[in-house]
Design a protein around this nucleic acid. Structure first.
Lengths: 336, 336
DNA sequence: ACAATAATTGCAAGGGCTTGCAAATTGTAA
DNA sequence: TTACAATTTGCAAGCCCTTGCAATTATTGT
C-alpha cells in the first residue's frame, strides 16, 4: 500500500529552522532580501526535510507559471521531433517548461487552446494547422504572448515565426531550371496547409517567369512517405515527360524518388531531378542523397522563445512581429 | 501596449449570477450537488463572462493536477515522435496533459525529475536513459505513480512497461539462422542502454545455442543513421565474411545497408541479411524494404497510461508491475 | 558613543478555488 | 396542514505560497 505522505511545506521548514514562513519563501525567491545566516539555516532545514517549493501555490500568487503551451499537429513528420527537441531545450534553458498539446487526430484546436489557457500558460506557440480568431483574441485579452510557428496564417494580428517558404519555392525553381530541367512539376503537401500554399506559389511563379513549362501540380494528402509515393505514382503515370520535381517535404521526395527509380526505372538525377524540403537526417543517407531546402530551425525556435520570454518580461513593443527566415539549398545528388 | 486584464474568477461569475462562489465551484465540479436551475444560471453567467476555472487554484486544493510528466531523451530517433504522439493522445483522452521534459543534452535526469515534481505531476513516465534510486524513492514517498517506459532498469521497485527486447533478439537470431546465414554479427545501439543490453543478450544467446558463429559484436555510439553507418564501415572492413547482421534499430540498419550496398557492393539479401528494430515508417520504403522487429507501441503506451490513471484513482494493487510485450517480426526484403 | 541610514525579518492579507458543516429549501407522507 | 427526510445552498476555513508594510536588527559616519 502506498503510504500517502503529504508534501513538505514551507511551514514545516520554517518550524524546523525556527524562522518565519516568509523567510523560507524569500530564500527560495531569487533576488529577495535574506542574510547569509538565514539562508544557511533555511537551506539546511530544507535539505534535511527534502523541501521543494510548490510551484502551483507560487504561480497562484505571482500569476506566472513558467509554462509555455505548444500546440502541435503532424506527429508523423520526423522534422517535428527536432522542433520539439529544440523547443523543450530552449525553454528549459530559460527556466520554462513545455506543455505539449497534440491536435493531430481531429482534436479541436480552439478547445485545446482553452484547456492550455486553464493552466495559466505564460505563452503559447501554435504549430498546428489552423488558428482561430477566437484564440488570438483570447490571448490578447489575457496578455498571453502567442506565436504562430512555421506557418503563416492569413490573420494579421499575430506573431509569426516562419521560414520564407515562398522564397524557398522560388529557389527550388531557379535551381532546377539552372540545371537544365525543362518539364517541371510541383508535388506539394496537403492543399490546406500554409506551407504548401507558399512553397507552391513561389515555385510556380518562378517557373512561369522563366517561361519554363509546368507540367503538373499535385498535392499529397499528407506530408508522409506513403502519401508522397501514392501521389507520385499517379503523377508520373499520367505525365511521362516530367524531368524535374519540387517536393513538399523530404518524406514526399523520398516517395517520389522511389517511384521514379523502382517503378519507372528512371535514373536520378539524369532522367529526373528532385528537390525536397526540410533536410531531415535521412536526406543525407546514401540511399537518397537528396538535394533539399533547409530552414534554419534552430534560429526560428530561438526567436520564438525570445519573443515569448520578452513579452513575459513586459519588454514587448506591443506590435506583432512577422519574421520570415531565409532558406538555404543543400546540394547533394538529386540534381545533375 | 498590452492591456493586462486579470482573468475572470469564480467570484465574478457568482456576482453576475447572484449566487455564492461555492455554487459556481460546484457547477464546475463533476459530481457535486447542484440543482438544474442553479446550473443554468451559473452557466449562463459563466458563458457571458467567458469564465474558465483556474486549474492552478483547483489543484492547490485538490492535490491533483491532471499533469503527467514525461521525461524523454533520444530526440533523434523518429520512433519517439510516435511515442509522444501516442502518449499525448492517450493522456488527453483521459483528461490528462503531458508535461514534457527533454533530457537529451547532458541534462540531469534527477534534477529534471525534481522540477517535474514541483509542478505536482500526478504521474511520471521515464523514457530516458537512466533512472536513479533517488527518483524512485521520491515518487514512492509522495505516492506518485512512476513507470519506466521502453527500458528495463536494474532497479526492481518500479513499474516497467517495455518490449521484450531479449525475446526480440532471440527472434532475430533464429530467423537469420533459419534463412541460412552462418556468419552473424550484432551491431547494437549505445552500450549503456538497457534496450541494447537485452537485444544483445537475446541475440547472442540464441546464436550460441544454435552453434552458429558470431563474428562481431559492435555498438553504434547512438541510435542514428550516421552512427550506424560509421560503425558499419569499421565492422565490415574488419570482418569481410559477415553474412547476417542484427541491428540495434532501423536507423542503424539503414546505415549498415547503405555501407554494404554502396561501399562494399554487396547485394542484400543474398550477400548480406539484415534485421532491424522498431519498424519506423521508412522501413517499408522501397529503398530499404527492411525486415525488422516491431514492438506493440500502441499497447505499451495504453498500458502505461492505464497504470498511471489507475494509481491516480487509488485502485493500484500497490505492488509494482513488470510488463514485457512480445515483439513481432515484420518480413520485407532484407532476408533471403 | 550616538544618531541616522540601510538591511533584514515577521506579520498578515491575499491569490482562486474546494469542501465540511449547518442553514435553508424543497419534497413527501400522513 | 404538519412533521420529517432529502436536497440544495452559503459560510468560512484552508490549500501553500508571495509580498507590502512596519518593526527589528545591523551598519556606518562622526
Amino acid at each position: 500500500m502506498t503510504e500517502r505522505v503529504s508534501r513538505i511545506t514551507a511551514s514545516d521548514v520554517a518550524l524546523e529552522a525556527g524562522v518565519s514562513i516568509s523567510a523560507v519563501s524569500r530564500v527560495f525567491t531569487p533576488g529577495a532580501s535574506v542574510s547569509s545566516k538565514m539562508r544557511d539555516r533555511v537551506l539546511a532545514a530544507a535539505e534535511k526535510l527534502d523541501y521543494m517549493p510548490n510551484v502551483l501555490a507560487r504561480s497562484l500568487m505571482t500569476q506566472r507559471t513558467a509554462l509555455v503551451g505548444i500546440i502541435l499537429a503532424n506527429f508523423q513528420n520526423p522534422m517535428h521531433l527536432t522542433t520539439l527537441d529544440l523547443f523543450t531545450s530552449a525553454l528549459q534553458a530559460r527556466g520554462l517548461r513545455a506543455l505539449v498539446f497534440n491536435v493531430s487526430k481531429g482534436v479541436d484546436v480552439v478547445e485545446s487552446a482553452r484547456q492550455v489557457m486553464q493552466y495559466g500558460v505564460d505563452g503559447l506557440v501554435v504549430a498546428a494547422a489552423s488558428m482561430s480568431q477566437a484564440l488570438v483574441d483570447q490571448c490578447a485579452r489575457q496578455g498571453i504572448p502567442l506565436v504562430a510557428y512555421a506557418r503563416q496564417p492569413r490573420n494579421a494580428k499575430v506573431n509569426v515565426v516562419c521560414a520564407d517558404n515562398e522564397a524557398g519555392g522560388r529557389l527550388a525553381a531557379r535551381k532546377l531550371i539552372e540545371r537544365g530541367y525543362r518539364k517541371l512539376a510541383y508535388l506539394g503537401g496537403p492543399a490546406t496547409t500554409s506551407t504548401n500554399a507558399f512553397r507552391e506559389k513561389g515555385f510556380c511563379d518562378a517557373v512561369g517567369e522563366a517561361g519554363v513549362e509546368l507540367v503538373a501540380r499535385v498535392n499529397a494528402t499528407e506530408y508522409t512517405y506513403d502519401a508522397g509515393r501514392k501521389a507520385a505514382i499517379q503523377m508520373l503515370d499520367e505525365h511521362r515527360n516530367i524531368d524535374g520535381v519540387f517536393c513538399g517535404n523530404d518524406l514526399v521526395a523520398f516517395g517520389v524518388m522511389d517511384v521514379a527509380r523502382y517503378r519507372h526505372g528512371l535514373t536520378i538525377p539524369d532522367d529526373l531531378g528532385i528537390i525536397g524540403f526540410d533536410d531531415i537526417e535521412l536526406a543525407s543517407a546514401d540511399a537518397y542523397q537528396l538535394t533539399t531546402i533547409r530552414q534554419p530551425m534552430s534560429d526560428m525556435v530561438q526567436q520564438t522563445v525570445d519573443i515569448i520570454s520578452q513579452a513575459m518580461a513586459g519588454q514587448d513593443s506591443g506590435n506583432v512581429k512577422r519574421l520570415l527566415f531565409p532558406c538555404t539549398l543543400i546540394e547533394r545528388g538529386t540534381l545533375r
